[in-house]
Design a protein around this nucleic acid. Structure first.
Lengths: 214, 214, 214, 214
DNA sequence: GATGAATGAGCCTTCATTCAT
DNA sequence: AATGAATGAAGGCTCATTCAT
């Protein structure tokens, strides 16, 4: 039976593994590797604490699995993108795609921020295999077309950093912003606004006025 | 003896308390309240673990003292500012001041990010007594002068969020950016570049072109 | 299969819980709640210190469980008694029963004495749910029959107190008496002697001579 | 200046030592050696925790000093008594004296009970140097005169034990009896009643009827 | 595959004690 | 003589992990 992608009904074990991963993702995204207790993960996953060890040899490996699982779809997203035409609006499409993806996986930015702040052992892995490619793709797309003509190389880190902060940061800082503005940053309206806002800022950065404006 | 600012020699106890606070600040800024072990703080402060309890009744109160101590100078900064004239460049001066302060207290943004991500009990206190006033001050100054003429109120949360992310986030994400770009975000050049960059972005946001550019 | 009292084989966990309770009883009966270390209980129970917490949430609750367990049989004893006929010798049977029970649970009087002397939080519970009923029962039985004719109510506290001291106190003070007399108060002969002795004293108290004798 | 007993005004140090001893007595009488914290003693004595160590090398020695101090007056009492005539009522005078002394030093019985129940290292010392002589004296006096004629030697431990329990026990169990009867065993009326009660019981024990009554 | 029970290591905190002042 | 500061050694309790069932 060629060509037919066999989607097996997930076994009970696969379901359990999935529940564990989801629970772990939420927990690690709040407390980080050290601050999270395996008991908390187990409770939220609805399994016995010992069951985790049927699937992962220890807390750290479970953590790494959570990171891997969170990052893979982004990589896939980018592969898909790379395959497409570079076109002028490619960058903007990618921005939308990233924001949509993060909106559906709001734990991901938190995991990355925590790993960064705690200078965890996975940080360089995340940077190299993940964010660096993402930034290449995004900025490559953005400066594509005629827009990038007057683009100065030295701006790259600044723009890249700003991009990360305005996209990932939006989700990581959501609880603080909710507290200040009494609105939910994860609500679709705000996400849309934020996406537009980033788009505009990027337009400005690539506009010929930019350098002039000191 | 006029003109002589009487600085009392700090007692031994005051020095110890200070060493503890500094060690705790560094530790909490990496691991958060839960992830930090009092042993680590004590070791880094060069005192016995039990000595911490001479100064603070428990880990949580030490944590709160660290937050308080980190936030007070920023509040002072703002009082000083509020006292000054609002003038046109006031906002930009404040931006410089904030960036300089954070450059000297790079743990502060990390503390806030961790508290935010872990949805800690101090979060609303930080938001209300601290960031909200700071944002009021900064954005008030920015839209001061003729610039704010075409300012639309609904932009406030977006601009405020962006401000926090580009200033505080610069320091919180420093290890990640160092990893990606192999340069140190805490180096004066990058901080200066970043400050200029933010300044320009803000100019754009307040320019009459902003709304047009959709 | 009638007549066969089905005694479920205790599970391993039940056995462990029982070992812990017994060890805790001995330890608390010597040192009280505060003076006992959980390590000591664990060691004597032959389990790891952490295992205690599988069965009781903390030291205090274990202590309370020990008290509860020690008191229940006495309450049962009294229920059994209350069900029987009050008859003339009822009181003396009860005296025998109490002494026999204490002989087999010599920790119980010590627990009560320690709780009393340290004015522990369980004291009023012990007094109300436990000793008060016991005294009611015993003294009720004793003054039953014609004996109680010339019984004066104001004697009640004196007689009750004496009863407690001569029964419970015999076991609580055993180590001291052993030291002084080089004989073991827990030896059956002495217990029998002591029981007779109490019986005689009580006879005297209820004899018509009592009030005359000043 | 011979013969004149010089009562020096106590020095400040002597006063401090006294305050410490009193505080320690109260504390040890509730919690025993192990269960008492030196901090508690210091606080109640109104001195710094370190000050205790100016007077006693460690907690155990302070405890022993408390015991010594509590026991000496009783020994003095007995010496005084031994010097007096043995007369018929000597025993009853001694009973009164003991009860009065304990009423003024209610911690003493508690200390002894705690030391007994915990089988402390001072127990044999207390028994030998203290209670044994006291019992000799008391029972010697009691069986003095014609009363002791039909006294049977084997009763000695029973009577002695009863004596200890009804005198010392009255004070040691005071909190329990207060709880049950809602009256204070340390109130003079009750103490007087209790003394009379003991006196009567002893009369009975020495009466010719005793042996008959089986 | 899942779990209740068990445990060694470790965590936060307290304690008894010492020392410089 | 008295104390505030400091500390090593527990003390109670939790944690990550293992294992028998």
């Amino acid at each position: 039976m060629p060509e037919i992608k066999q989607i097996n009904t997930p076994t009970k074990a696969e379901l359990t593994r999935e529940r564990i991963l989801q629970a772990a993702e939420r927990a690690f995204a709040r407390r980080g590797l050290r601050g999270t207790r395996v008991r908390e993960i187990a409770d939220e996953a609805g399994v016995n604490g010992a069951t985790l060890y049927t699937y992962y040899p220890d807390k750290r490996r479970l953590y790494e699995a959570v990171l891997e699982r969170g990052m893979r779809p982004v990589l896939d997203l980018m592969d898909e993108f790379a395959a497409g035409r570079g076109g002028a609006e490619a960058g903007e499409h990618l921005l939308d795609a990233v924001m949509q993806h993060l909106a559906q996986h709001p734990q991901l930015p938190r995991l990355i921020y925590l790993e960064t702040i705690s200078e965890g052992s996975q940080l360089s892995h995340i940077a190299r295999r993940w964010l660096h490619p993402l930034l290449e793709q995004v900025l490559g797309a953005l400066k594509g077309g005629d827009r990038g003509a007057h683009w100065e190389e030295s701006l790259y880190p600044l723009v890249a950093t700003a991009f990360i902060q305005l996209t990932f940061g939006h989700f990581a800082l959501a609880p603080l912003m909710a507290e200040i503005f009494h609105r939910d940053p994860l609500a679709p309206e705000w996400i849309e606004q934020q996406t537009d806002f980033i788009r505009k800022l990027i337009h400005q950065m690539f506009s010929p006025d930019w350098e002039a404006n000191a």
